[in-house]
Computed example of a mutant assay.
Amino acid sequence: MYQVLFKRLEGNEDIKLPSKMSEWAAGFDLQAAVSEPVVLGPGERKLIPTGLSMAMPAELEAQIRPRSGLAFKHGITCLNSPGTIDADYRGEVKVLLINHGQEAFTITRGERIAQMVFQVVPVVTIVETDELPETVRGAGGFGHTGV
């Protein structure tokens, strides 16, 4: 089990810490810490604050992902999805939202806007080589394995 520390930034004492909405949920919902309602017009994108900063072990990353309900009902999703928060970042967690819907959408304080999923980051060593092992697929790219 990993421990992740969260700090509420000044003026955001009313904002809840990230929380799971069901026992087996993978993601922790994040709330908007906007000081006044933010209108996101069709095709518009905005960076939405959460009022929180965090510290997590070096073995983890936090991925910011869309909430399926907002995406389905209103076309609201995360533009950089999944967005990665590295373990050494200590600034405010913010969510880059975009409106792919047909109508303006208003984001209010405390609204659940995204989810945060924690993943273990493997330790990887990059090695340069002049030759790669062969595979059946080879260099076949986009659409190579079927429709």
Rank of each mutant, 00 (worst) to 15 (best):
S19R: 15
S68D: 05
I76H: 07
P49I: 09
R137K: 15
R137F: 06
V34L: 14
C78S: 05
R8I: 01
A32T: 02
K20T: 10
T84C: 06
S19W: 12
E10Y: 08
Q102A: 02
G69I: 12
R67F: 02
T145M: 11
L132V: 08
E134V: 15
P49Y: 10
A62D: 00
D14Q: 14
N80K: 05
P57R: 12
T106W: 06
N12L: 05
G140C: 02
E59F: 00
G140P: 00
Q63M: 13
A58W: 01
A25W: 08
P49R: 12
I76Q: 08
Q31K: 10
M1L: 05
I113H: 02
S35H: 00
I76L: 09
V38A: 01
I48T: 03
L60H: 04
I48W: 02
I107E: 07
I107D: 07
E44K: 12
L60D: 03
I76Y: 11
E134H: 07
G91H: 13
L5I: 12
K94C: 13
A71M: 11
G51K: 13
G110V: 07
M1A: 15
P122Q: 05
R65A: 07
L97E: 11
V117S: 09
M54Q: 14
H144A: 15
L47S: 03
Y2P: 07
R8A: 02
K46D: 13
A104T: 03
E59Q: 14
E23F: 06
S53Q: 11
P57L: 04
G140Y: 00
A58L: 08
E134Y: 05
V121D: 00
G27D: 02
L52F: 01
V127W: 01
T129R: 14
L52S: 08
D130R: 09
A25N: 10
S19T: 15
P18T: 08
G138W: 14
K16W: 08
Q102E: 05
V124P: 04
A26E: 03
V93D: 04
N99S: 03
M1I: 09
G91T: 11
V136F: 04
K20N: 11
I85L: 15
H74W: 03
A87D: 02
K16H: 11
Q102V: 10
R67S: 00
L5G: 00
S22P: 01
T129M: 14
R65G: 06
N12R: 06
T50Q: 06
H144W: 01
N99H: 07
G27P: 00
L9E: 13
G51A: 12
E92F: 13
A55R: 15
T77A: 06
V4H: 04
V39Y: 05
C78M: 12
D88W: 07
G146M: 00
P37H: 12
L30S: 08
E36A: 15
G43M: 12
T135E: 01
S19G: 03
G27L: 06
L60Y: 04
P66T: 10
G91E: 13
N99F: 07
A33M: 09
T108M: 01
N12E: 09
M116V: 06
P18N: 06
P82F: 12
A139H: 03
H100W: 06
N99R: 13
S81V: 14
